[in-house]
Write a protein that binds this DNA or RNA. Sequence first.
DNA 1: TAGATTGTTAATCGATTAACAATC
DNA 2: TAGATTGTTAATCGATTAACAATC
Lengths: 209, 209
Amino acid sequence: MGKQEIPDIVIQRLPVYLQALNQLLREGRGVVSSAELGHIVDVSAAQIRKDLSFFGGFGKQGSGYNVISLIHNLRAILNLNQIWPVVIVGVGNLGQALLKYQGFSRKGFEIVLACDNNPELIGTSISGIEISDVRNLAADIQRLNIQMAILTVPAGCAQTVTDLLVNYGIKAILNYAPLVLKVPEGVHVINIDPVVKLQTLTYYLNAED
Amino acid sequence: MGKQEIPDIVIQRLPVYLQALNQLLREGRGVVSSAELGHIVDVSAAQIRKDLSFFGGFGKQGSGYNVISLIHNLRAILNLNQIWPVVIVGVGNLGQALLKYQGFSRKGFEIVLACDNNPELIGTSISGIEISDVRNLAADIQRLNIQMAILTVPAGCAQTVTDLLVNYGIKAILNYAPLVLKVPEGVHVINIDPVVKLQTLTYYLNAED
DNA sequence: TAGATTGTTAATCGATTAACAATC
DNA sequence: TAGATTGTTAATCGATTAACAATC
């Protein structure tokens, strides 16, 4: 497929480029150079050109990149030309919080399923989504054709739940639980626990404020 | 200070090591080797030893690392032996969500201030925190001695708000807004927009599910 | 003592940057 | 045409890994 050889770090930068391009589009800009785009996203011009060249030559010598056309190309590369159904697993404080967040659907990710093992929650609705029983997860994931999960369960059961998700065909997990998940090859995980990120930031601060 | 020369990527791994060590502690383990710790966090044993050696020799040849003692050392390195006051700026869907999340205080981060510019929100309380007027931000940050901010405002005003925060003395920002913030040297930003992370994951999925 | 594992150095690997011919 | 900027190659930089003496 040719995908294997592109470094993960390159892929992680593409959505950031896309962000900046969308902003340029809103400002009515037609073209942008790698130097200017690099300035916006704090990446060197050479790196942007190198990253893009993994996928093709999208620019034009002398003028730069057409904003709309590069947006289209990046969206195609990242498979963003469709609405992705997503399941939220674990409807505690954080899960409920994310269910209420409107930002996903605006960007093409639709939360179509939320589940928990708490009988008090099952059957209730949050933001128009009825919380379903985690025991129905296999059938629900298959029925709704879901490949992506947001994991917001306690650390203690995160690996067990992950094993289930992987068994049921989930291929991508956004992990809010504070641990490193074990997944087989072909399943992709991004860790996003805000506490871990804050713990990185405190290193740079002066203690005993 | 000697801090300058340690790569950011090393610092980012330390909270993950700490996570694993805390779990080992809960399981009653007294010592752990770099090989076993590496297996848990999916990092090579050599890398763990190298990372730790930036800060000192915490292990013992032949047996490995004392779990409790390494936890203490990592907590000291990361400045985690204190409660850090945090401000949440922007109390929309995501900001409210994070205000209700109990996970911060359990790990030593206390949300002591939440602010917004919406008059309908100002004065109301969420999870025991009264939403204050963003116009009082300078005084509030100084009074509460806050160095860390969680930014959950719309992208359109994120840079403006960031400039204010930096002016008021904020040194670390956990940024949920979908854009790259410009900050002066000495101010640290980690980007954590879940939509950007999902957009990275879709690259690896098969389109047209 | 024998076995195990650290801390550290040198070798390797991979990512970033600099440079420039091609060309719009 | 002259000026600007891409795409790509080679050089540089930095991070990871392998190896092993030191030593518990």
